[in-house]
């Protein structure tokens, strides 16, 4: 099949970017979107041009490395699919695809389709954990967890942190990501001791990173490759409202967002 890939090309954060169109004549419909870019990059390398930079790792939809906008939709038109799992047969012959990186102040631009998503790491660092005593492994069933709770926690834990929610949100909000992390620990008994602090700290870090606010419209859920429900955002709000009320000191430690790529801030 024939496709035209119109891709955002930008060497680095400080250089000027532009869209470049690459016509492709021989696209195998069984290729994934990333394999299609691999093929394009081979031909670019042969011609002595700079290949298109994009992030990837597992290529089986579970690592959260890949992701970019395809014609205005994060991860492309297939629901619950990352770009590495998106096969080209879902597009029409002769279609033009516009590939753009995630656009967010909190995700500083790196190169072509790559952005720096360490803001997510810092949100996790600020409270997305539980504290356990080290030593021997605890007994398997020492803490009973109901099947339904465990399912709900696992559904929230399915978040791979790809950043599509932020990219799709008209407000650039990270509410779905942060909500998923707060929910997945907060639902389980092991997550209870730090539940208040977790919500307060993760919300504080989310704020520090410069993400926008949630307007409950659900664009994030619509593009989420793991179909994380909006319910986790309500969960975050509930835990935050409770935590903010009960917390006795209102000083929290946040991590200053610093990016090697963000030369403008230096």
């Amino acid at each position: 099949m024939k496709l035209t890939l119109t891709i955002w090309r930008q060497k680095g954060p400080d250089s000027k970017g532009k869209f470049v169109s690459y016509p492709m004549d021989n696209v195998n419909p069984e290729m994934s979107m990333l394999e299609c870019l691999d093929v394009l990059n081979e031909s670019l390398a042969e011609r002595g041009e700079e290949p298109v930079a994009f992030e990837h790792d597992c290529r089986e939809g579970i690592c959260g490395s890949c992701g970019f906008m395809i014609s205005g939709v994060a991860h492309g038109p297939q629901p619950a699919t990352t770009v590495c799992q998106l096969t080209m047969r879902h597009f029409k012959d002769g279609e033009e695809l516009v590939l753009e990186p995630w656009r967010s102040r909190a995700f500083p631009f790196v190169k072509d389709l790559v952005v720096d998503r360490r803001a997510f790491d810092r949100i996790i660092e600020s409270g997305g954990y539980i504290s356990v005593s080290t030593g021997n492994a605890p007994d398997g069933n020492a803490i009973p967890v109901g099947k339904e709770e465990s399912d709900r926690a696992m559904d929230a834990a399915a978040c791979i942190g790809c950043g599509a929610c932020v990219a799709a949100c008209p407000n650039g909000s990270a509410a779905l990501f942060t909500g998923a992390k707060i929910a997945h620990l907060g639902i389980l008994p092991q997550g209870q001791p730090e539940r208040d602090r977790r919500a307060v700290r993760m919300v504080a870090q989310m704020h520090e990173e410069g993400f926008g606010s949630c307007t409950n419209i659900g664009e994030c859920t619509g593009v989420c490759p793991k179909e994380i429900p909006l319910e986790v955002i309500a969960r975050m709000n509930r835990d935050y409202l409770g935590g903010a009320w009960r917390e006795r000191k209102n000083v929290v430690t946040t991590i200053a967002p610093v990016s090697d790529w963000d030369f403008a801030k230096k």
Binding site: R118, R122, E125, S173, V200, R201, V203, A204, H207, E208, G212, S213, C214, M236, N237, Y240, L241, A244, E247, N250, V251, V252, T253, T254, I255, A256, P257, V258, D260
Partner: peptide
């Protein structure tokens, strides 16, 4: 890459969640 710092938590009104 990252340096921790003590901050006043965005209060109820300061946070986006509180405003909502």
């Amino acid at each position: 890459v990252a340096s921790p710092r003590d901050n006043r938590a965005p209060g109820f009104w300061g946070s986006t969640n509180g405003k909502k």
